[in-house]
Nucleic acid binder design. Structure first.
Length: 734
DNA sequence: GGCGGGTGTCATCTC
DNA sequence: TTGAGATGACACCCG
């Protein structure tokens, strides 16, 4: 479990974070096999059934029933909540964007390309997983589906016509209208549910074998669907089987063709790709990814993770690069097409523009190319898995100037503000020095902390927050203050509490090191006794407990004989009690210890005491005082340790926050650098000399003047100035 | 029997 | 100077 947790922490969580950073919302939970713990468990901690995590609040109530923190029912509770959310989400249309397009494409082709329909439909269904709409265990996905639905509908009109030449524009519009009506009329999700459809199809087959109906395609595709879809036996969730490359048809092949149902799909991936090389590349890259993870000690469930990551990442990347109508196996609404062009246009699109262009030319393999030697920058920041290599091109790990090519060597040197350069250098320095995996994990904690979940794992179940501690302390302060006089005034009824508190003078808050923290508050009043029951330090028991009829410790009950009881009582007495009794001291030890000096002297004056007696009384008083002082001292020590621990956690949290801000600054600065560089290239490329020839970037460079104008200067001069600036910066650092 | 935690006690220091 | 508190060190007990 730990290794699995580590794997997700360092791998998929970062992967998810990265996806979220670029605006893609992913529910990785659905990628996991049923026997793997849900990510929620990884984020929130281990199942309460296996940990001692203290859910000391009222959150763990399921429909009014209190769930014990350690109850295994908590898992059911979470499952029930998830299922409840699914049920509640049923009234919303939940078809991933890819499914919508696939379904329509199939229906479009129904009229004319009957032979290809089953395969097409199945392949699409297989790929995008219509059942996803029926397994809405993630609001994320449904939201995404809802958001992207309208766009997809619009896209469909553009996708379908060129694909199927038999359909007229009116056909498409009609289909579109019917489609919308289905949705408006609240078409049940069972329409899109594979299993339901399958049953329905069997009935349809019997009832109307040749009837042309809206679901006919499904029945025809049923047998292939059996082959194409794997159904999780536990969850019932269907997920796409990985077609061999030769088994997957492309839309362009299948739809226009008149080949029969036997036509094997060829991938549905991209017309730009051959059906054979792409899955191989993706698989190969996944193997690379896995090998990297394995070399870093991660336990990887290659079966589950490979399948899921292969599905999502591969399909999405393809989708992103080739801007296809989504027909690739995508199990969720992760659309890198949107990610790279939509939500991340501000951030990553500009950053990766050059990279994306090159990648799209080079093919999809480069996108998944992991860069294990990326040891700086974001890769280091986000841990050691190098997953960031997928999203952070090498330019991010090095300098942006590397992208400028040989023709524009470091054009930014003179363009960037000195302060910015300082900042960048500081950032780089901090990135190199500060971003070790530990801090990266802190960073993750900080990300987690947004949900209020971070650092709780470091708290032991008994660890109380300061507020809890203070409240507990206030609620049981009397017990605690009296505990300070254990052994002498444990019989609180006979002790002046004010005196006792005055003697103690310290109200330590509860700590996790104090056993009381684990006790039920109702038991606190018995703690002084329980404490001694636990440790059976009988030699320092309070004398009052010996003289009164108070309930004796459990061990006492077994010794019913009077002699044994007498022996026990004898042992219960402290040494000072024994001495006092032997010396016939006329007043109890607790008075000797707890009385103020004046009253104590007054008490002594009332009796005619020998020197030995007086000496013993003073020793008893000294030892008693010292005993309480020692107890208080120890409690103070514990509190000091706890406070230090809290301070460390706070500082770590602050540090994580600062590191995260640093990453954001770094990213924005690099974006600015990229923009400036692009602008530089554009301006420089437009410059012409007297002969109308462009200037050579090796000989000339642009430079900002102090008045804001841009001048063209010889490269040598620009280099000189650049070196001068570097020197200035170094001097400033010194 | 060893070990760790809790506790009592002593010596010492500080206020 | 004395008393009280604080604290390190040690020993003892218990689980």
């Amino acid at each position: 479990m730990l290794s699995l947790k580590k794997y997700f922490t360092e791998g998929l969580i970062q992967f998810t974070i990265l996806l979220s950073l670029i605006g893609v919302r992913v529910d990785v939970d659905t990628y996991l096999n049923s026997h793997l713990p849900p990510l929620r468990e990884i984020f929130l901690g281990q199942s309460s059934a296996y940990t001692q995590t203290q859910f000391h609040n009222l959150r763990n109530t399921l429909d009014g029933y209190v769930i014990h923190p350690k109850s295994v029912d908590l898992d059911y509770y979470f499952t029930a909540r998830r299922l409840l959310n699914q049920v509640r989400a049923l009234d919303r249309f939940q078809v991933p964007t890819t499914e919508v397009s696939a379904w329509l494409v199939h229906r479009d082709s129904e009229g004319s390309v009957s032979g290809a329909q089953p395969n097409t439909g199945i392949a699409l269904e297989n790929g995008s997983g219509l059942q996803d709409g029926t397994v809405p265990d993630n609001e994320v996905r449904e939201n995404g589906a809802e958001q992207g639905f309208g766009e997809e509908l619009e896209d469909l009109g553009a996708v379908a016509p060129p694909v199927n030449g038999d359909l007229t524009k009116e056909d498409i519009d009609l289909i579109d209208i019917l489609w919308r009506q289905d949705i408006d009329l609240g078409a049940g999700r069972e329409i899109f549910d594979y299993s339901h459809r399958q049953k329905e199809n069997e009935v349809d087959k019997e009832a109307n074998n040749g009837e042309e109906c809206g679901d006919g395609w499904r029945s025809r595709g049923g047998d292939v669907a059996d082959r194409a879809l794997l159904v999780d036996g536990e969850t019932g969730e269907s997920f796409p089987a990985q077609f061999p490359a030769a088994d997957a048809p492309s839309l362009t092949e299948v739809l226009p063709s008149e080949s029969g149902p036997s036509t094997v799909p060829d991938g549905l991936l991209s017309p730009l790709l051959t059906g054979t090389e792409l899955p191989f590349d993706l698989e190969q890259q996944w193997q690379d990814l896995m090998s990297i993870m394995e070399t870093q000690g991660m336990e990887v469930n290659s079966t589950a993770a490979a399948g899921t990551l292969y599905d999502s990442t591969g399909g999405d990347i393809l989708n992103a690069n080739y801007s296809l109508a989504p027909s690739t196996p995508i199990n969720q609404n992760v659309s890198l097409h949107q990610a790279s062009l939509g939500s991340c246009t501000q951030d990553f699109a500009s950053l990766f523009s050059s990279e994306m262009e090159s990648l799209s030319v080079a093919g999809s393999s480069a996108l998944l190319q992991l860069v294990p030697d990326n040891s700086t920058g974001f890769n280091t920041t986000f841990g050691s898995t190098n997953l960031s290599g997928i999203f952070f091109p090498p330019q991010l790990n090095g300098t942006v100037n590397e992208t400028s090519g040989p023709e524009l060597p470091d054009p930014l040197g003179g363009l960037l503000d000195e302060a910015m350069l300082d900042e960048i250098s500081l950032m780089d320095l901090a990135t190199e020095e500060g971003f070790n995996p530990v801090q990266a994990s802190r960073l993750e904690e900080e990300f987690d902390s947004d949900s209020g979940l971070s650092l709780d794992s470091s708290h032991s179940p008994a660890s109380l927050s300061s507020s809890e501690a203070s409240s507990s302390s206030s609620s049981a302060s009397s017990s605690f203050s009296e505990e300070g006089a254990v052994g002498y005034n444990s019989d609180s009824e006979n002790v002046d509490v004010e005196d006792a508190e005055g003697a103690v003078g310290y109200q330590p808050e509860y700590s996790k090191f104090c056993r009381m923290s684990y006790q039920n508050p109702s038991q606190l009043q018995y703690l002084p006794y329980l404490e001694h029951v636990g440790h059976n330090h009988t030699y320092n028991m309070a004398p009052r407990t010996l003289d009164t009829d108070e309930p004796q410790p459990a061990t006492m009950g077994k010794k019913s004989a009077k002699d044994k009881q007498a022996d026990f009582l004898d042992k219960q007495m402290s040494r000072d009690e024994h001495r006092a009794r032997a010396m016939k001291i006329p007043f109890p030890n607790e008075k000797i210890i707890n009385l103020p000096v004046e009253e104590f002297n007054e008490l002594l004056s009332k009796y005619q005491l020998s020197e030995a007696q007086l000496s013993l009384i003073r020793d008893i008083r000294r030892r008693g005082k010292n005993k309480m002082a020692a107890q208080n001292c120890r409690k103070r020590k514990l509190d000091t340790i706890l406070n230090l621990e809290r301070d460390v956690e706070d500082l770590q949290r602050d540090k994580s926050k600062l590191l995260r801000e640093k990453v954001e600054f770094l990213r924005s600065i690099r974006q600015m650098k990229q923009k400036v560089q692009n602008l530089y290239q554009e301006v420089f490329g437009r410059l012409r000399d007297e002969n109308g020839q462009p200037y050579s970037p090796n000989q000339y460079a642009l430079q900002y003047a102090s008045n804001g104008s841009v001048i063209l200067i010889p490269r040598s001069l620009a280099d000189q100035q650049g070196r001068r600036q570097e020197r200035k910066q170094k001097d400033r650092r010194k």
